[in-house]
Amino acid sequence: MRALNVTPHVTRNTTTTKKGRRSSIDGRTTRHKSYAASQKFRKRIEEAFGWLKTV
């Protein structure tokens, strides 16, 4: 992604899972205001999909 000059806006997984997986998103990505804004927007979208699935 960095070679293409694209900032990934995926959720950062900071805890190690049972299988030992962690995300490779580091502080270079998460320090920007646009990342925080993207995560807030993503949360709203996920809530809407969750609500639709229950209905």
Score class of each variant (00 low, 15 high):
residue 1 M to D: 01
residue 1 M to W: 05
residue 1 M to I: 06
residue 2 R to T: 08
residue 3 A to V: 05
residue 3 A to F: 08
residue 3 A to G: 10
residue 3 A to H: 10
residue 3 A to Y: 07
residue 3 A to D: 03
residue 4 L to A: 12
residue 4 L to H: 07
residue 5 N to L: 12
residue 6 V to R: 10
residue 7 T to K: 15
residue 7 T to G: 03
residue 7 T to F: 07
residue 7 T to Q: 12
residue 8 P to E: 00
residue 8 P to R: 03
residue 8 P to H: 00
residue 9 H to L: 14
residue 10 V to Q: 02
residue 10 V to Y: 02
residue 10 V to C: 09
residue 11 T to K: 14
residue 13 N to M: 03
residue 14 T to V: 09
residue 14 T to S: 07
residue 14 T to H: 06
residue 14 T to F: 02
residue 15 T to D: 01
residue 16 T to K: 10
residue 16 T to N: 04
residue 16 T to M: 09
residue 17 T to L: 03
residue 17 T to D: 03
residue 18 K to Q: 11
residue 18 K to F: 05
residue 18 K to I: 06
residue 19 K to I: 06
residue 21 R to S: 02
residue 23 S to P: 01
residue 23 S to E: 01
residue 24 S to N: 10
residue 24 S to I: 00
residue 24 S to V: 04
residue 25 I to Y: 04
residue 26 D to V: 05
residue 26 D to A: 10
residue 27 G to Y: 05
residue 27 G to I: 07
residue 27 G to L: 09
residue 27 G to P: 02
residue 28 R to N: 13
residue 29 T to I: 13
residue 29 T to N: 09
residue 29 T to E: 08
residue 29 T to Y: 03
residue 29 T to D: 05
residue 30 T to V: 13
residue 30 T to W: 00
residue 30 T to S: 10
residue 30 T to Y: 01
residue 31 R to W: 01
residue 31 R to C: 06
residue 31 R to A: 07
residue 32 H to D: 07
residue 33 K to P: 12
residue 34 S to R: 14
residue 35 Y to C: 03
residue 35 Y to M: 05
residue 35 Y to G: 02
residue 37 A to Y: 06
residue 37 A to G: 08
residue 38 S to P: 03
residue 38 S to R: 06
residue 38 S to N: 09
residue 38 S to H: 06
residue 39 Q to F: 00
residue 40 K to A: 08
residue 40 K to V: 02
residue 40 K to I: 04
residue 40 K to W: 05
residue 41 F to C: 10
residue 41 F to P: 02
residue 42 R to K: 15
residue 42 R to A: 09
residue 42 R to L: 11
residue 42 R to I: 02
residue 43 K to F: 02
residue 43 K to Y: 05
residue 43 K to A: 11
residue 43 K to V: 07
residue 43 K to I: 05
residue 44 R to I: 09
residue 44 R to C: 09
residue 44 R to E: 08
residue 45 I to A: 07
residue 45 I to W: 09
residue 45 I to Y: 10
residue 46 E to I: 11
residue 46 E to Q: 14
residue 47 E to D: 08
residue 47 E to M: 12
residue 47 E to I: 10
residue 48 A to Y: 13
residue 48 A to L: 14
residue 48 A to P: 04
residue 48 A to C: 11
residue 48 A to Q: 11
residue 49 F to Q: 14
residue 49 F to R: 15
residue 49 F to T: 13
residue 49 F to Y: 14
residue 50 G to R: 15
residue 50 G to T: 11
residue 51 W to V: 15
residue 51 W to P: 13
residue 52 L to M: 14
residue 52 L to D: 08
residue 52 L to E: 08
residue 52 L to A: 13
residue 53 K to Q: 14
residue 54 T to M: 12
residue 54 T to P: 11
residue 54 T to S: 13
residue 55 V to T: 12
residue 55 V to A: 13
residue 55 V to M: 12
